[in-house]
């Protein structure tokens, strides 16, 4: 099933109420917002009403809001090879190292308690 990926590119400020109504019906409320609608004449007709304001692509898959957000996010320029366990605040050098602490949800594979 294919979808129209519709992005609101131009704002509808100052345009007729009918035009703004069409955008609201498409679910577009602010610029750069992305919505997906199936390829059907009724949605095609709505796009034709606001063709000057939107950008349209035909896509095979709907992306979630989060995926659309991640698409827009720039590359951070680094990646974490392996996460390092962090020392808890204020614990270092207080003499209670080696204390046995059971942390919920944090257990080794053998079911042993974890030393912090």
């Amino acid at each position: 099933m294919s979808y129209f990926r519709i992005t609101l590119h131009r704002s509808a400020i100052g345009l007729p109420k009918r035009t703004r109504g069409v955008l609201a019906a498409l679910g577009l409320h602010k610029r750069s917002q992305v919505v997906y609608h199936p390829v059907e004449p009724q949605f095609a007709g709505m796009i034709m009403k606001v063709k000057e304001l939107v950008r349209v692509d035909e896509v095979d898959k709907k992306l979630s809001k989060w995926e659309v957000h991640m698409e827009r996010k720039p590359d951070p320029g680094f990646y974490v090879e392996s996460a390092v366990r962090r020392m808890e605040d204020g614990r270092a050098g207080q003499g209670n190292e080696g204390e046995r602490v059971v942390v919920e949800g944090l257990r080794t594979e053998g079911g042993e308690e974890v030393r912090l």
Binding site: V39, P41, I47, R55, E58
Partner: peptide, 10 residues
Amino acid sequence: KVVETVANAL
């Protein structure tokens, strides 16, 4: 481009 996309999809 918008019109073309819509026409092709339909």
